[in-house]
Design a protein around this nucleic acid. Structure first.
Length: 932
DNA sequence: AAATTCACG
DNA sequence: GACGTACGTGAATTTC
């Protein structure tokens, strides 16, 4: 068929596909020889998806992928600086360029590039030919340089956003129609391609001028008429540069091609060619997908490749089948499973209980799996519903082995050092077993494997991991126990219903383990997992089980005092407002402040509600008495509801202590988080809040001690960024903020004021977070320009910090992650996004190695701590990021401080020798307020 | 369930 | 040239 009316040509911007694929994916290598193939893999995925998405009635009749030819183009002859500030392609991308051409041909799609021309010119020429032949053309690209081609049957399609760009879309972007796009571009220039344009004129101004004068030529001819003197001068003086810019952005629609549109006709796929290529690249998942679409059998990979193929396991092909899950009802079946476990050497285990609180949880059943697709459930505590009779709630369901018999049979296996027990979130299950005096060891944990491998990429809950890596959606727990008020506990579920859910969890855990464990080496995080994750599990479990004693009476008295004060404040507030309203409602408060009292400081937020945060109320406090009272009320309300009231409900009836739960995967940086209750945010900054710490007490005859790292993150910054001045200051034990102030502001140390020191402190902390002038200005409540000056001077004085930031950003952009000193990888998938998301990712990437290294250090200390204090009457109870809290008999306070301090100060060694000393401060007392 | 606010390092 | 603007968390409360 010759190309003509009714025909539809698709032109794919190949280079855009390659770069998008490269940056969107983590570095991926071919397993058999380590060849980098991340971009090729992503490129093939995009082509496959393109083909699947374009099979319908509007399918193209002709298609080609157009590439840039390597080397210079004719534009470099026009202007030697054209695209001169483009960084060279990353080393691991270069070998992939020819492979993407091979991939295109393997998909049986025409593949074109021409020496001395850019892909955009070939696309332009073909689009014009298609238009001349009365056919349609769709350009699959979002490159704004191609927008000049739109119109008259030519459209663009942004494949990522699946958004078509027509004439209207171009006008939206450039403010002019496609025929004037080059004029606007010539004026505005392009920093990415290094097109100079007219200095000081951007797209907005350019569109305004072009629309007023009709065309670039008319504008330049009549430049004398322009009113703004600066703009007039620019256009007159830079005429040559602007005309050159137009030549650079103008695409060549009239290239001589050695092929015609007819050569681009869509061809049927050649399964052998395509699958052969994908097999050569060892892209397992894509082979299956492509074979499925083609309706042919997927070829098997060569054996070594199969064994190692990334993100694919033997388990992937084994279906999930609830019929293969076994209900263990008798002793013979249980013994059979135990024998199978000993034969295999490892087993995936999951426990079902009647509570999410491990301190009180009782076993409902145990699941085991040693082979993907096969699992069993051993119910031991399922009870009949309470509906039958008064005692029904305690009566056991049928066909369950006695709990003690099951535990006696399993205990030797669970404690056998030769048998590896695999869990998803091992800490929970180990604590449950600990309730039955069973010490499970050794243990692997798929949640922690995922965290070591994928921190920052996604969460590590089992449901999410299963969907992502096994392509399988587990049975939602809601279908068994319901949700909200009518929720029941798992031990009340009928065993027949519980079986498929529970056994599946062990099955999934085993499959995830088979997938993740070999990846530790390939991603080089084995040491992270083995030294920072795995050994921490028993340490945290022990701390949680000890808990910390909290005095209910103290909290209760404080609650009452807060309630009284709040009532008084509330009356005053209503008085001042002239009406009653809910002080706790930001919405109602906003209306009182800004509508009724007409205080300055209008709306904010996307919901249209007034913002009434502490910053705003503090500013308003100078205008009116009410905001200050609200702030006082809020502080009390927070203290009462979150602390003095809520903490009481967390006191364990049996132990009289509060048992928090640490989430080891809680923060992407390696920090822990603490929940139910969160004991990492107990008030300390305000005098009234700090008194809540008086309720955290030591037992009679014991004391609480607290040891915290002094300015650990700044020390790490000094080491990582290699700032001599900072390192020396730390080595000499000087006041680091005063030192910074004197360096940055030029004030001698003996003339230092607290205000200047405070500013330096804010800058020191800001730097760790990637602060902007705007942010520092807001924090210090100083003019923005002044804040920017501070920051500039800071970087001038400590240029190494700027270098660290630039290097970190560059590393994140090429690798997709950043690293701590101990090799922990924190992924930064958004670093190559554009807009504000990239800014957030950039600041997070700067902060992560610092915060993460600090987290690694205290983890190392915690892991060594039990051994260091084993002969002392002391227990480690809490961790608050840079602080550890112990309970110790009065007689051993000094010895414990000495032992713990030594472990903490030496925690980096022998792996790392820091250039700065780590200093640990210590306190002691009958309660946490005194100890801190 | 989302948004807002505020407690901590 | 515009846009947003300091990192990492968890919990309580109000609003939709």
């Amino acid at each position: 068929m010759g190309f003509g009316k009714g025909c539809h040509l698709h032109l794919i911007d190949g280079s855009a596909f390659i770069f998008r694929a490269y940056h969107a994916l983590p570095p991926l290598t071919r397993k058999s020889d380590g060849l980098p193939i991340g971009a090729v893999s992503g490129f093939c995925n995009m082509l496959q998806r393109y083909i699947e998405d374009n099979a319908g009635p509007d399918a193209p009749t002709h298609v080609a992928v157009i590439f840039d030819h390597s080397g210079k183009s004719f534009r470099n002859d026009l202007y030697d600086q054209y695209k001169a500030n483009r960084p060279p392609a990353p080393e691991d991308l270069k070998p992939q360029f020819p492979l993407t051409r091979d991939a295109t041909r393997a998909f049986n799609i025409a593949c074109k590039e021409i020496e001395g021309f850019e892909a955009d010119d070939i696309i332009a020429t073909l689009a014009c030919q298609a238009r001349a032949a009365s056919g349609r053309c769709t350009i699959i690209s979002s490159d704004k340089d191609l927008m000049q081609l739109v119109g008259d049957g030519v459209e663009m399609l942004d494949a990522m956003k699946n958004k078509r760009i027509d004439r209207e879309g171009v006008i939206e972007k450039f403010g002019v129609g496609p025929e004037r796009v080059v004029d606007v571009q010539a004026l505005a220039g392009d920093s990415v391609d290094n097109v100079p344009g007219a200095p000081g004129i951007g797209i907005k101004t350019a569109a305004l001028l072009i629309n007023e004068y009709g065309s670039l030529e008319d504008l330049l001819d009549r430049a004398e008429e322009i009113k703004q003197p600066k703009r007039r001068q620019t256009l007159i003086e830079k005429r040559d540069q602007i005309e050159l810019s137009k030549q650079l952005v103008q695409l060549d629609c009239d290239m001589a091609l050695d092929f015609t549109l007819d050569d681009l006709e869509v061809q049927d796929a050649d399964p052998e060619k395509l699958l052969g290529f994908l097999a050569e690249m060892e892209l397992r998942t894509l082979i299956k997908r492509a074979a499925d679409k083609l309706g042919v059998e997927a070829p098997s990979l060569p054996e070594p490749a199969l064994a190692a193929a990334e993100d694919a396991s033997a388990a992937e092909d084994i279906p999930f089948d609830a019929a293969k899950y076994e209900w263990v009802k008798d002793r013979a079946a249980l013994d059979r499973w135990i024998a199978a476990i000993y034969k295999r050497g490892y087993v995936a285990v999951d426990t079902e209980t009647n509570s999410l609180d491990e301190m009180v949880a009782e076993l409902a059943g145990i699941c085991l799996s040693v082979e993907p697709g096969e699992a069993c459930y051993i119910p031991v505590g399922h009870k009949k519903g309470a509906s039958d009779d008064l005692f029904g709630g305690e009566e056991l369901q049928e066909d369950q082995l006695p709990l003690t018999e099951v535990l006696d049979a399993l205990q030797p296996m669970l404690e056998d050092p030769a048998i590896l027990k695999i869990f998803q979130n091992a800490k929970y299950d180990c604590k449950v077993f600990a309730n039955y005096k069973i010490a499970v060891t050794p243990v692997d944990d798929t949640m922690l494997l995922s965290y070591a491998l994928h921190a920052g990429e996604h969460n590590h809950g089992m449901d999410a991991l299963s969907e992502r890596y096994l392509n399988h959606q587990p049975i939602p727990i809601k279908t068994l126990i319901g949700s909200g008020k009518s929720m029941i506990t798992f031990d009340k579920v009928a065993i027949a219903d519980a079986l498929p859910y529970a056994a599946e969890d062990a099955d999934i855990t085993l499959r995830l383990w088979q997938l993740f464990k070999p990846k530790l080496h390939r991603r080089q995080v084995s040491t992270v997992y083995e030294t920072l994750e795995r050994p921490l599990v028993p340490v945290l479990a022990q701390m949680e089980r000890y808990g910390i004693k909290v005095d209910r009476d103290t909290l209760s008295r404080m609650s009452n005092a807060f309630a009284q004060k709040m009532a008084g404040l509330e009356a005053e507030i209503h008085e001042l407002a002239g009406q009653e309203f809910n002080v706790g409602s930001p919405k109602q408060l906003g209306e009182i402040l800004f509508d009724k009292l007409e205080l300055p400081g209008g709306k904010k937020g996307k919901t249209g509600a007034y913002a009434t945060g502490v910053d705003i109320l503090e500013d308003l406090a100078t205008e009116h008495a009410l905001p200050g009272l609200v702030l006082d009320w809020r502080q009390l309300s927070k203290l009462k509801s979150t602390y003095t009231d809520a903490l009481q409900t967390h006191i364990n009836a049996e132990t009289g202590r509060v048992h928090t739960s640490y989430v080891q995967t809680g923060a992407n940086t390696g920090r822990l988080s603490s929940t139910d209750p969160n004991l990492q945010n107990i008030p300390v900054r305000s005098e009234e809040g700090r008194r809540i710490r008086e309720a955290f007490v030591a037992e009679e005859g014991k004391a609480l001690i607290s040891l915290d790292y002094s300015q650990v993150e700044l020390r790490i910054l000094a080491h990582i960024a290699d700032i001599d001045a900072l390192k020396e200051a730390f080595r000499d034990g000087r006041d680091i903020h005063a030192m910074t102030a004197s360096e940055v502001f030029g004030v001698p140390l003996d003339e230092m004021t607290s205000e200047i020191r405070r500013r330096a402190k804010a800058i020191n902390f800001g730097v760790i977070y990637g602060v902007s002038g705007f942010g520092l200005a807001r924090n210090l409540r100083i003019p923005r320009g002044e804040a920017q000056d501070f920051i500039n001077r800071y970087f001038e004085r400590f240029p190494g910090i700027r270098t660290y930031m630039d290097d970190t950003k560059e590393f994140a952009k090429t690798h997709g992650y950043v690293q701590t000193l101990f090799g922990r990888k924190i992924h930064t998938p958004e670093i190559n996004a554009k807009g504000p998301r990239a800014s957030f990712a950039y600041r997070a990437a700067i902060n992560a190695p610092i915060q993460g290294t600090a987290a690694d250090i205290i983890r190392r200390a915690m892991i060594r701590m039990p051994e260091a204090i084993k002969d002392l009457p002391a227990k480690m109870l809490l961790q608050v990021h840079d602080e550890l809290i112990f309970e110790v008999e009065d007689s051993a306070v000094d010895a414990t401080i000495a032992a713990a301090r030594e472990v903490m100060q030496g925690a980096t060694e022998p792996a790392i020798k820091l250039d700065v000393p780590l200093i640990v401060d210590a306190g002691r007392g009958a309660n946490w307020a005194e100890a801190h």
